[in-house]
């Protein structure tokens, strides 16, 4: 059974259809890169997967671990093992970063019928994960994303992913706005997390990221559809020639 099966998905925002018939199958152990120009429907796909209330699915289906994903609330999707790494993580002043992570971690344990982890044990776990993603421990005591630099916000997303250890992670332009050093650190964190039991969807605008995280599949989005799929060489070709040739090729 596939981990995720998207069939003929049509979805949009405030009555405008943006994703216009996307089908995609993702198995455990796979890394999929989704590329494409702005407005091609990449981010809408990620919002739909996470269950954002402003996005509406008008046609098609998404089956995750054999269940109808569209029936689940965002928090139920999270508890079922889907993680969304935001392009623009929101700042929440007043919510302590470590405390928030502990609440999220324990919500998962409770949903599996397990005992909550006490604060001391969680602190140990958190220290280990922060090391993994190269994050300064001082960010434990900061408010969630509040006043973080762009790079620290993205690192914090990867930290959350490492702590929550999802089955499927969707990283929406996690590489945007990162300098090369931060990109390397973030990629390293992601690579350490990848294993044969989980899967990753990398949404990105730039081929650069794929030098550090090797995709098994590359999909090119355009006008709300997958125009072309291939292996990582497709990404290299895109970098050289831009998106236009894909659009032209598929139009013919």
């Amino acid at each position: 059974m596939s981990l995720l099966e998207i069939k003929d998905l049509h979805a949009g925002f405030e009555g405008t259809e943006i994703v216009k018939g996307v089908s995609l199958t993702i198995n455990a152990g796979e890394v999929h890169a989704v590329m494409g120009p702005n407005g091609s429907g990449k981010s809408t796909l990620s919002k739909v997967l996470a269950g954002h209330p402003s996005y509406e699915v008008t046609q098609g289906s998404i089956i995750y671990k054999g269940k109808d994903l569209l029936e689940l609330d965002p928090e139920q999707r999270a508890l079922a093992g889907i993680f969304m790494g935001f392009q623009y993580p929101v700042e929440i002043p007043g919510v302590n970063n470590a405390e928030f992570l502990r609440l999220a971690y324990n919500a998962q344990l409770v949903s599996k019928g397990e005992e909550e982890l006490d604060p001391l044990d969680f602190d140990e776990l958190l220290d280990e994960k922060m090391k993994l993603v190269g994050m300064d421990p001082k960010y434990k005591d900061r408010f969630l994303n509040d006043g973080f630099s762009g790079g620290e916000k993205k690192k914090n997303e990867i930290l959350q992913m490492a702590v929550l250890n999802p089955s499927l992670a969707v990283l929406d332009e996690t590489d945007s706005g990162l300098d090369i050093d931060a990109l390397k650190v973030v990629s390293e964190g992601v690579n350490k997390w990848i294993n044969k039991d989980n899967a990753l969807i990398l949404i990105t605008h730039y081929q650069r990221l794929l030098n550090y995280i090797q995709p098994d599949f590359v999909h090119v989005f355009g006008q709300g559809k997958i125009l072309k799929s291939g292996d990582k060489n497709l990404a290299l070709e895109l970098e050289k020639q831009g998106y236009d040739w894909v659009v032209t090729e598929t139009a013919n």
């Binding site: 269950g51 209330p53 609330d73 965002p74 928090e75 929440i92 919510v95 928030f100 919500a107």
Partner: peptide, 24 residues
């Protein structure tokens, strides 16, 4: 929405946001 995508229930997320509003 952000908090819910991390698995927090609507009630817990709402309480967290309300208290954080003054806690900061």
């Amino acid at each position: 929405f952000y908090l819910k995508t991390r698995g927090l229930s609507e009630e817990l997320a709402t309480e967290l946001l309300t208290t954080s509003f003054v806690e900061s």
